[in-house]
Amino acid sequence: MAAGGFDRAEARNVSKIYGRVRALHRVSLDLTPGRVTGLLGPNGAGKTTLLWLFSTLTTPSSGTMHFGDLDPVRAREARGHIGLLSHASLTYGDLTALENVTFYARLYGVEDPEGESRRLLEEFGLREALDRPAKTFSRGMTQRLGLARALVGRPSLVLLDEPFTGLDRASTRTVIQRIHHLREQGAMVLMISHDMETTAELADEIAILVRGKLTHRHQGRLDGDALRARYAEVAEGAGQAAQEASA
């Protein structure tokens, strides 16, 4: 692993328990460079929990997280190489869009932080809003700002939780192109989305979580219809089986 970058991220048999709730149960998932993994599942399936584990901001109750050659107990050292877009914007409402991204660019040691931030924000269609406070942004604009912030450090691992929420058609296309670009650049991308069309367009592999368990994994691409059918079969089938078992 050169200079702290890593080219493999893996969850190995991880479980996560919050109090009496088991959010994840013995899940294993590996991410490789140049591939987009689509993580699907019904609400409460544990998708976001798994994303947080990959972010290293939370630790598994059991099992291990592996980042490159890092010893799992030193997984936190992978931080700084991970870009995270979560439900929250992770930006400061009183700062402008440019100030927000530039602040993070400085923390990541980006050369020409303001120039790079400006370029990213313009790429995400925020040229006209560079000097506006983030708190005045619409949901879609906040999402794009969050993406610019997540990518400013050129992360090896990109974690996207519902990246298309609130985006109009044009912005969705921009984000899709950017994710394609990340793949070409060799980043590992883990993406949670309920949008089957965009997931089908982007994902090189699909992982489906149901009730904290990884119930299905598909290597290779699926078109929208095939993905919907596969999801219905796996997620709804598993839900029905669980209901029958509990009855």
Binding site: A2, G5, D7, P33, H81, E111, G186, A187
Partner: peptide
């Protein structure tokens, strides 16, 4: 990968 190298160079 290019992304890993670019990020690593920054860090």
């Amino acid at each position: 990968s290019a992304q890993v190298e670019a990020g690593a160079a920054v860090r």
